[in-house]
């Protein structure tokens, strides 16, 4: 093929030698041939792109990046307690809470989903107002404005993160429930703030599971 390619490069047209002498009727091959070729190409590319390629990538990934390739699992005391990429629901006042989730069962890792509520839909307004009220009820002394991410559902329903503001907002409640002082909890959050990548990509966030695991460790260490 390379020889023909070389001859081709000198002309404007890029297709295989259009002036081939050996078979002037090439362009009028009966359509039956096209059918067989179409089927054959589909089968061959299905094997190549649909089996060989994903199997090869799986093999390479399992060798080079086994942790990531298997779901970025988080282990505590020998037991898997979650994935660092998939959020979990938290309801106890002594844990930092994740964002509301729109999946049927909150944070169902087998079935992602969003609310798809439109901006003008009153149901969105009602849901947000209810969540604000619930946060206020859980922490009556806290009059700070509620960070928007803490009262809206994410795209996936599995958001593992909250904004730093949403973590700091919950600090008084968590501190009280855990018998810790405010500065200790805020210092813990400080250590978990992940900034923007190279200062411009994405938004600052805190991984809720990692934060809560460290919170458990902190409390356990004090005993």
């Amino acid at each position: 093929m390379r020889e023909q390619d070389t001859s081709r490069s000198s002309r404007a047209s890029a297709a295989p030698d259009p002036n081939s002498h050996h078979d002037p009727n090439d362009s009028t091959v009966p359509p039956g041939n096209a059918l067989a070729t179409a089927l054959g190409m589909l089968v061959v590319f299905t094997i190549l792109c649909g089996l060989v390629y994903p199997l090869a990538i799986t093999g390479a990934a399992q060798v080079a990046f086994p942790a990531q390739a298997n779901g970025s699992l988080v282990v505590r005391d020998g037991a898997v307690v979650g994935s660092s990429l998939i959020g979990q629901p938290f309801t106890a006042p002594g844990y930092f809470w994740s964002r509301p989730s729109a999946t049927a069962v909150a944070y169902d890792g087998t079935s992602s989903g969003a609310s798809n509520l439109g901006p003008s839909n009153r149901a969105l307004h009602t849901a947000v107002a209810d969540r604000v009220a619930a946060l206020r009820a859980a922490d009556p002394g806290n009059t700070a404005p509620v960070p928007i991410d803490l009262v809206t559902t994410s795209g996936s329903g599995l958001d593992p993160d909250i904004s730093p503001a949403a973590a700091y907002y919950q600090a008084p409640r968590v501190a009280r429930a855990r018998g810790l002082d405010g500065p200790t909890v805020r210092a813990l959050i400080d250590r978990h703030v992940l900034g923007r990548v190279i200062g411009i990509l994405g938004d600052p966030h805190v991984n809720v599971l990692a934060l809560n695991l460290d919170l458990d460790a902190l409390v356990a260490g004090k005993r």
Partner: peptide, 27 residues
Amino acid sequence: TLVDTGVDQVASATQGGGNMEGKETRF
């Protein structure tokens, strides 16, 4: 429409803010 619910949507050092319904925090 959410302004009267008492939420904070303004970008600051500790949050990206904005219209966060249906958006992921890390983005």
